[in-house]
């Protein structure tokens, strides 16, 4: 997995959101990479919401909605080099240069039209779901740094999650990046630990983790109960990528 990039203190929340999206894409690509290429186990769409609600890829994929993963891998807007702190194997920490591909740029904005964004996701998936009834249901990961400023997210989230494939309902996972000094929460099974009503609302509209994902989380030594929801507060959901099932993964890679 690509770990959080060090030195993010003092950065804007929207930078953290963009980093979280880019790291999700990065990890998904590495997961599906094989030999010289990437297998198209997934199609990916990024929606940006702020001053406008629209497909959010930058660079060669600008304006596209669902893009096969191999095309995403080969078409970042740019590849940055960042310093990552790693264990030096002797009790210390050293900095190492790592490649950090960027597909999505930070959106500085004054409004948070989350309801519209979820509706756009629903429109895009309304075309995909009937054609892929045998597939695992689509996963929508909503990463936000603020409260919705439109009618969202509850009715739009419910409409989105009403769509189904033979394998279950569309899954909505939410990730709230906040400026509050609150310990990170990942995959909670209760909203009791959350600091405000908005975080609790996002928790309530987050899907329960299906058995398949919980089983894989268990094989990765992470015990999650049946009430666990796909939700994170002040943390990202990059961990989630490990639980996606594309076939045998060695437990040595834990």
């Amino acid at each position: 997995m690509v770990d959080p990039i060090a030195g993010s203190d003092g950065r804007r929340k929207c930078d953290s959101v963009a980093d979280a999206i880019n790291r999700l894409l990065h990890n998904l690509i590495i997961k599906c990479a094989r030999g010289e290429g990437v297998r198209n186990f997934y199609e990916v769409c990024v929606i940006g919401y702020g001053a406008q609600v629209a497909p959010g890829f930058s660079g060669p994929l600008a304006g596209r909605d669902l893009v096969p993963l191999s095309e995403v891998a080969n078409s970042p807007a740019r590849v940055e080099e960042r310093l990552k702190q790693i264990d030096d194997g002797a009790g210390g920490v050293i900095s190492k240069k790592v490649k950090f591909p960027v597909w999505f740029e930070p959106l500085a904005k004054g409004i948070t039209p989350m309801g519209q964004a979820l509706s756009l996701a629903q429109q895009i998936l309304a075309g995909w779901v009937p054609q892929h009834q045998k597939s695992f249901p689509p996963i929508v990961i909503n990463i936000t740094d603020g409260e919705a400023t439109d009618t969202g997210p509850v009715p739009q989230a419910e409409a989105l999650c009403n769509m189904t494939t033979e394998d279950g309902n569309v899954l909505l996972f939410n990730c709230h990046i906040s400026a509050q000094e609150v310990d990170p929460v990942v995959f909670p099974d209760t909203d009791a630990v959350l600091p405000d009503d908005f975080a609790r609302t996002l928790f309530q509209v987050s899907s329960l983790l299906p058995n398949t994902l919980r089983d894989l989380a268990r094989s990765e030594n992470m015990n999650l109960g049946p009430q666990t929801r796909g939700f994170a507060f002040n943390a990202d959901l990059v961990e989630l990528i490990r639980f996606l099932d594309i076939g045998t993964r060695s437990s040595n890679l834990r």
């Binding site: 894989l216 990765e220 060695s250 437990s251 040595n252 890679l253």
Partner: peptide, 18 residues
């Protein structure tokens, strides 16, 4: 059976648990 067996790796650093 599960999808996360312990496997023999080509990367020597990953085989200690094997």
């Amino acid at each position: 059976f599960n999808d996360r067996p312990l496997l023999l790796g080509s990367n020597p650093a990953r085989n200690q648990s094997v």
